[in-house]
Amino acid sequence: MKKMDQKIIQMKEMDLLLCPKCREELHVEEKSLKCKNRHTYDVSKKGTVNFVLGYGEEYYNLAMLEARERVMGEGFFEEILTAMAEEIYEDILLLEKEGDVIRILDAGCGDGSHLAMLGEALKEKGLQVSMVGVDLSKDGILLAGRKMNDALYFVADLSALPFKDNSFDVILNILSPASYKEFQRVLSPSGRAYKVIPGAKYLTELRKLYGLSEYDNGEIVSHLKSHTVVYKERDIRAQKKVERYADDLLLMTPMLWDKTILEPGAKLSKVTIDVHLATFGYPKKIEEGVSL
């Protein structure tokens, strides 16, 4: 079966898509998605769909995203993804949902590597998962669509997600902007969201090479806590040897773009991973029994 046909079948089975223009349900018609107002979105040969209607975030270009994909393949974020898999699994057991199909949305999925790796980790723990990734970058979704897994990938704006209310049990938001209003809408009442935020020492060696100040996540954490209920917090730290892929690491890191290195001959041998993992949700949805 062609990849496009396989993904179209998945879209039919999941039945969670809304038109971002008019918020009416989308249905599959041949090789397109259409709503009752005849707004139409074509399914690509790789089974992806572009919902952003002619514009997208080109800042994250293909070369940068391919470098990121290679860095991911080197296990750069292994500790982060392992910790997330542990937290998700514990929460699924706590909520007594281990026999259900867990619907996962990666909001800001980039090239799809995080979602693919986390999905495999959760399957190894015995969970059944249904995965969807969205990103504003057309190139990111192009790369994600090449992956040989059963996830669905869409070019979409986080502030106007093309999904029905209460569509997901889990939302991933990894080193990416968030849209808490939309997360609240598409997350199920008992669902959990997992946000990864850089810590003060995140990529500190790179920051020193380029003369950048220490990272301060106080504003992001404060914003998160003012819009959600944070259930758990966890700090994840590791040191990674990066000699083999230092050039890719520099290319994939947005904070370094257009910056000048202070020591042109310096060799980058190790880098610090320091992130804050927050598990949050919207318990008021359970109390009121409605989507807010």
Rank of each mutant, 00 (worst) to 15 (best):
M1H: 13
D5C: 09
K7Y: 11
K7F: 11
K12R: 15
K12E: 11
D15K: 15
L18M: 14
K21F: 07
C22S: 06
E24N: 12
E30K: 14
C35Q: 13
C35P: 11
C35F: 14
C35G: 10
H39A: 00
T40E: 15
T40G: 03
V43W: 06
V49C: 09
F51W: 05
E58V: 05
Y60A: 02
E66N: 05
R68H: 05
E69T: 10
V71D: 01
M72W: 04
M72I: 04
F76P: 05
L81I: 04
T82A: 04
E86S: 06
E87A: 06
I88Q: 00
Y89H: 15
D91I: 04
L93Q: 13
I104W: 13
I104D: 05
D106Y: 03
H114R: 01
M117Q: 15
L118Q: 08
K123L: 08
K123T: 12
K123Y: 08
Q128T: 10
Q128S: 15
S130M: 12
V134R: 00
G140C: 02
R146Q: 15
N149T: 13
A151C: 13
D157E: 06
D157A: 00
S159F: 14
L161D: 01
K164E: 12
N166W: 15
F168Y: 09
P177G: 03
F183I: 01
R185W: 01
R185V: 00
R185F: 01
S188E: 11
R192K: 13
A193N: 01
T204G: 09
R207F: 06
K208P: 02
K208M: 10
G211Y: 12
S213V: 13
S213M: 14
G218W: 09
G218M: 07
I220H: 04
I220R: 09
L224D: 00
S226L: 09
S226T: 09
H227T: 08
H227E: 14
T228Q: 03
T228W: 05
V229N: 08
V229P: 07
R237E: 15
R244E: 13
R244T: 09
Y245E: 02
W257R: 00
I261L: 03
L262N: 12
E263W: 10
E263D: 13
G265W: 11
I273P: 09
T279E: 06
T279V: 09
P283L: 00
K284A: 01
K284G: 01
E287L: 08
